[in-house]
Design a protein around this nucleic acid. Structure first.
Length: 646
RNA sequence: GGGGCCGUAGCUCAAUUGGUUAGAGCGUCGGACUGUCGAUCCGAAGGUUGAGGGUUCGAGUCCCUUCGGCCUCGCCA
């Protein structure tokens, strides 16, 4: 069938079925189409993309296909900027050359899909467009084919960066046409391709692990999938392939990787989706240095190839304790200094009851020196900054400004009056404070003080522009504790996960001093964002059993949940370790976006909905029946029902 | 589960202490135009102010409920 006939049929169906007035508004188009459809057009085959042609191509006959990005109709000349994923090329339609083609071009509208054949011609003096890679040339159209028309898009492609995200998600196919979004999709593709190549060259095998997996109630909430064949039983979607990849090591796979979807049914955030992708890796016969070395190279390769940024190797390391003491977090942003300082000893001597009272109750006083923080007014500090710290649990924020008087630094305002001359000088010295700085303190438990000061430090640095936002500062955080004591649950919790190995010299402490065991875990952090983490695993079933004991997982529970895994360890498990990177976060950093939805083609909202497809949705009673499931009445409905009974 | 911000034309926004017929730019549609590239010029259409209720002579504006989006605390081994 000729394309003309095909287009005509599509046109007809479209108009009839939609009933939308938009479809009936184009008498000119119909008239012209019917003329052209009489000609026996075959579909024009694309010869180049829309970013390819240059002055050197002048004189060539080419065919381009794509979307009408914009059109400029001068009555005589018509210009169409044709867009595909590679770029834009201007096509010019001249009525003196091909009257019919020109006439058809006048009917084209934004986002129509067209193919045009013509001759590449240089643009004459002063008419080149320096904003376009192809701006030196244009296509003088000789043939034009409308491959498909488009309704007026719900938002303009050019200004979509200002359009509400909700609308962009509903019409994701339009949104993804935008060059910004295509560039992010491309970057993501480049990263995954590079990762596969990197691991392949090193002898890693990519192996898929099940999506329908066993639920393990530890950690995040599982997404559950009811089983039809096993009534009343459920699969869980994997939170990570952790145990499978370890079992692959027992299987002798030696080096495994996978770019794998993971699921955690927790509330999303700007940098978190319930469904996300990991670069998952496991290696046999390695120690933590081996894993760190390989993945330092991977990270350096990615940053070099995608951004042309050199990551100097080796990437520096920092112990967990140093990170917590100096930055209040295990994922410090090292683009700026501004370390936190404990001022317990000085605060104790002050006359400030908030400080001395906290210390008497076993707390600490910790603070930081905001370089150039004098630009914050008293009200900024006591309202904005204090409420910011309050969001992270701080009960208050004490402050003092650093001022130079007669060449001598002293503290002014806020809590300065509670510190004598000598104490003030010691404070200034401890923070190495300068004229115009602002000291901020939190008095609380060490944990609470860190929790508030760490985000405050980042906010201040951002506000005060203390770093180059284009910079990347990588760091490996090492020497994590194996456990942390959970006050609420009155038991030890694994800081990483329960399969992380202690350092060998601390094995004895499993019996005597579990709180002070150092693990063989490592996290890689960039600019305050944790992009990956892993550990050397326990490969001795006896040690693994001991860890379960300490985590208050009974033998019976351990057998039920992890029995298959403990059994595997008994059949010759090699020493092994691995890591997982958050692909989404890596791509966020590479593309400079703060929004994880921007690096996922079809993301979900904060309520876990896909606005494009409207998932999740209700299902048929029959489907539930087959799964042996019944809906519970919503509390809402129950209340209403009771009301009606009254 | 808690806190905050937001919802007005297809899009982005405006609308004085609650006061006439809810405006503008872009887009759309029609017309004009020989080189534009955010084309230009002329004209037109386009609104259940997210939804529901209340207060009031009068509600986009105030109150309550609800729906949706974003940010965030908790949560995320």
């Amino acid at each position: 069938m000729t394309n003309g006939g095909c287009s005509a049929i599509l046109f007809f169906c479209h108009s009839r079925e939609s009933g939308n007035p938009d479809c009936w508004r184009l008498p000119a188009m119909r008239q012209v189409s019917s003329i052209l459809f009489k000609k026996d057009f075959v579909m024009l085959k694309r010869t180049h993309n829309c970013a390819q042609l240059r002055l050197d191509d002048a004189g060539a006959k080419v065919t381009l296909a794509g979307w009408v990005h914009s059109y400029r109709d001068h009555g005589n000349l018509v210009f169409i900027d044709l867009r595909d994923r590679e770029g834009l090329t201007q096509i010019v339609f001249n009525p003196e050359m091909q009257p019919d083609v020109h006439k058809l071009a006048r009917t084209a509208r934004c986002e129509w899909v067209i193919a045009a054949e013509g001759v590449v011609q240089p643009r004459s003096e002063g008419m080149a467009n320096p904003k376009l890679a192809t701006g030196q040339i244009e296509i003088a159209a000789e043939r034009l084919e409308v491959l498909n028309r488009s309704k007026t898009p719900p938002f303009e492609i050019d200004t979509a960066d200002k359009t509400g995200e909700e609308l962009r998600l509903i019409n994701r196919y339009i949104d993804l046409r935008r060059p910004e979004m295509q560039s992010k999709l491309r970057t993501r593709h480049c990263v995954t391709t590079l990762v596969r190549d990197f691991f392949d060259k090193l002898g890693f095998w990519e192996i898929e692990t099940p999506m329908l997996a066993k639920s393990t109630p530890e950690g995040a909430r599982d997404f559950l999938v009811p089983s039809r064949l096993s009534k009343n039983c459920f699969y869980a979607l994997p939170q990570s392939p952790q145990l499978f990849k370890q079992i692959l090591m027992v299987s002798g796979v030696d080096k495994y990787f996978q770019i794998v979807r993971c699921f955690r049914d927790e509330d999303p955030r700007a940098d978190r989706q319930a469904e996300f992708t990991q670069i998952d890796v496991e290696m046999s016969f390695v120690d933590s240095n081996d894993v760190i070395a390989v993945h330092s190279r991977l990270v350096a390769r990615i940053w070099k190839q995608i951004l042309d940024v050199d990551v100097p190797l080796p990437i520096r390391r920092m112990t967990y304790n140093d990170a917590m003491n100096d930055y209040g977090t295990d994922r410090p942003d090292l683009r700026f200094d501004m370390k936190l300082k404990d001022i317990y000893d000085l605060a104790k001597q002050s006359t400030f009851k908030v400080f001395t009272g906290t210390i008497d109750n076993g707390g600490i006083v910790k603070g930081l020196c905001a370089t150039g923080g004098e630009k914050y007014s008293r009200s900024d500090i006591e309202k904005t900054l204090t409420s910011f710290a309050g969001d992270y649990g701080a009960k208050g924020l004490a402050w003092a400004k650093v001022k130079s008087e007669d060449g001598k630094l002293s503290l002014l305002g806020g809590c300065a009056k509670f510190f004598g001359e000598d104490l003030q000088q010691q404070l200034i010295e401890r923070f190495n404070a300068k004229d115009g700085d602002l000291l901020l303190f939190v008095a609380d438990s060490e944990e609470a003080a860190n929790k508030a000061l760490a985000p405050l430090r980042c906010k201040l640095a951002r506000d005060l522009e203390l770093y180059d936002p284009k910079l990347f500062e990588f760091v490996w955080i090492v020497d994590f504790p194996l456990f942390e004591w959970s006050q609420g649950e009155k038991r030890y919790d694994p800081l990483h996960h329960p399969f992380t190995s202690p350092v060998e010299e601390d094995l004895g402490k499993l019996e005597t001093d579990p709180g002070n065991i150092c693990s063989q875990a490592y996290d890689i952090v960039v600019n305050g964002s944790e992009i990956g983490g892993g550990s050397v695993r326990i490969h001795d079933p006896a040690v693994q059993q001991k860890v379960f004991d300490l985590l208050n997982i009974s033998r019976e529970q351990a057998r039920q949940r992890f029995g298959f895994f403990l059994k595997a360890l008994e059949y010759g498990a090699p020493p092994h370790g691995g890591i997982a990177f958050g692909l989404d976060r890596v791509v966020m950093l590479l593309t400079g976006t703060e929004n994880i939805r921007d690096v996922i083609a079809f993301p979900k909202t904060q309520r876990g909905q896909c606005l494009l497809t409207d998932a999740p949705s209700e299902v048929d009673a029959k489907q539930l029946d087959e799964l042996n499931l019944r809906m519970q009445k919503h509390s809402h409905a129950i209340e209403q029902e009771t009301d009606e009974h009254k």
